[in-house]
Computed example of a mutant assay.
Amino acid sequence: MIGGKSVLGLIAARGGSKGVPGKNIFVVNGRPLIQWSIDAARASGYIDRLILSSDDSAIMDVARNAGCEVPFRRDAALASDTASAIDVVADALMRVPGYDIVVLLQPTSPLRIAADIDGAIELLVSSGAGACVTVREADEHPYWMFRLGDDGRLSRFAEPAGGMPLRRQDLPPAWSLNGAVYVADCGWFLQHRTFLSPATVGYPMPADRSLDIDTVADLELLQRILGEEVNGPLPSSP
C-alpha cells in the first residue's frame, strides 16, 4: 500500500510462446525465469497482493511454489499469439477487483529489482499521472534513423532542431520502453485501456537491468551476465 492506495501485482505468463518455448520456466542460476520476477515483486514495499495470470499448468505450479498466488486460470482466448496484454490486465482486474493501483510485471525482465518496481509506483503516485512505465536510454537515437523510400532515397524519422547534423555528445536524451514495469491507476486503466498516453510518465532504469528475454540469444546473454556456464540445454527456437 502507498498513500492509502492498495496495490495489486500481476505477473502475466502464457504457455504458448513460439519464440522460445518454455522460456518462462527455464532455470537460470537455480531459479525458473518467472521466479526472478516473483522474488522482486515479493520484495516490493508497496505490493499488497501478487497474482499470476496464466493458461499453463506448469507455469502455474512453478509460480505457486515460488510464493505467487494463482487465483484463476486464464481463458484460452487470452493466451493466443494475438491476445493483447491490455486485455489480460483488464481480465485480471475484473476477476480480482478492489485495488487502486495495478503493477504489471512480465517474466521476461528478470534483472529488474524491487527498487525499480517501487520507484515506478512512487512516481505514479507523486506525479498524479494515470500510468507509469519504465524506460532506458535508447540504443539508437531517432535523429540517426531513416526511412527508405521506394526510390531508395533516405528521409529522417525525426529532424534535429535547425536541421544540422549532430555529434553524439550533442544529442538530446532519447528513451525506449524496456518492458520491465507497467503501473497504472486501476480506474484510469479500465477507462483508457492502455499504459501509454499523454498522461503516462516514464521511470528511468539502467541498461544493465533492462534486458528483455525474447530469443535464445537473450537467454544466453542473461547466463553470461550472471556468470553461469552456458553448457546446459537451452530451449530451442522453432
Results as ranks from 00 to 15, higher is better:
residue 74 R to F: 03
residue 74 R to A: 13
residue 74 R to I: 03
residue 74 R to G: 12
residue 74 R to D: 05
residue 76 A to G: 15
residue 76 A to Q: 06
residue 77 A to L: 13
residue 79 A to Q: 10
residue 80 S to M: 04
residue 80 S to I: 10
residue 80 S to L: 15
residue 81 D to M: 07
residue 81 D to V: 12
residue 81 D to L: 10
residue 81 D to Q: 07
residue 82 T to A: 12
residue 84 S to E: 10
residue 84 S to M: 08
residue 84 S to R: 15
residue 85 A to Y: 14
residue 85 A to K: 09
residue 85 A to W: 12
residue 86 I to H: 08
residue 86 I to Q: 05
residue 86 I to A: 13
residue 87 D to A: 09
residue 88 V to Q: 12
residue 88 V to K: 14
residue 90 A to Q: 04
residue 90 A to H: 04
residue 93 L to M: 13
residue 93 L to C: 11
residue 93 L to K: 02
residue 94 M to F: 04
residue 95 R to Y: 11
residue 95 R to A: 13
residue 99 Y to A: 01
residue 100 D to P: 01
residue 102 V to A: 04
residue 102 V to R: 00
residue 102 V to C: 14
residue 102 V to D: 04
residue 102 V to H: 01
residue 103 V to S: 02
residue 104 L to Y: 01
residue 104 L to C: 03
residue 104 L to P: 00
residue 104 L to R: 01
residue 105 L to R: 00
residue 105 L to Y: 01
residue 106 Q to D: 05
residue 106 Q to W: 05
residue 108 T to M: 13
residue 108 T to L: 13
residue 110 P to G: 10
residue 110 P to W: 08
residue 111 L to E: 07
residue 115 A to Y: 04
residue 115 A to Q: 14
residue 116 D to F: 03
residue 116 D to E: 09
residue 117 I to Y: 00
residue 118 D to H: 08
residue 120 A to K: 03
residue 121 I to V: 12
residue 123 L to Q: 08
residue 123 L to P: 00
residue 124 L to T: 00
residue 125 V to K: 00
residue 125 V to S: 01
residue 126 S to M: 09
residue 127 S to H: 11
residue 130 G to C: 15
residue 130 G to V: 02
residue 130 G to P: 10
residue 131 A to V: 01
residue 132 C to W: 02
residue 132 C to F: 03
residue 132 C to E: 11
residue 135 V to M: 11
residue 135 V to N: 03
residue 135 V to T: 09
residue 141 H to C: 13
residue 141 H to S: 09
residue 142 P to M: 13
residue 142 P to W: 04
residue 143 Y to W: 12
residue 144 W to Y: 15
residue 147 R to K: 11
residue 149 G to K: 09
residue 150 D to I: 06
residue 152 G to H: 13
residue 156 R to S: 11
residue 157 F to M: 15
residue 157 F to P: 02
residue 157 F to C: 14
residue 157 F to W: 09
residue 158 A to P: 06
residue 159 E to I: 12
residue 161 A to K: 08
residue 162 G to S: 11
residue 162 G to Q: 15
residue 163 G to C: 13
residue 163 G to R: 11
residue 163 G to H: 13
residue 164 M to C: 12
residue 165 P to N: 04
residue 166 L to I: 13
residue 167 R to P: 10
residue 167 R to T: 10
residue 167 R to K: 11
residue 169 Q to H: 14
residue 170 D to N: 10
residue 171 L to F: 02
residue 171 L to D: 04
residue 172 P to V: 06
residue 172 P to T: 06
residue 175 W to R: 07
residue 178 N to Q: 08
residue 178 N to G: 07
residue 179 G to P: 07
residue 180 A to D: 05
residue 182 Y to D: 04
residue 182 Y to K: 11
residue 185 D to Q: 06
residue 186 C to Y: 00
residue 187 G to W: 03
residue 187 G to S: 15
residue 187 G to V: 01
residue 188 W to F: 07
residue 189 F to V: 02
residue 190 L to H: 06
residue 190 L to C: 05
residue 191 Q to V: 08
residue 191 Q to F: 14
residue 192 H to P: 12
residue 193 R to W: 01
residue 193 R to L: 08
residue 194 T to D: 13
residue 195 F to N: 00
residue 195 F to T: 00
residue 196 L to Q: 11
residue 199 A to Y: 05
residue 199 A to P: 04
residue 200 T to I: 14
residue 200 T to V: 13
residue 200 T to M: 11
residue 201 V to D: 05
residue 201 V to P: 05
residue 202 G to S: 09
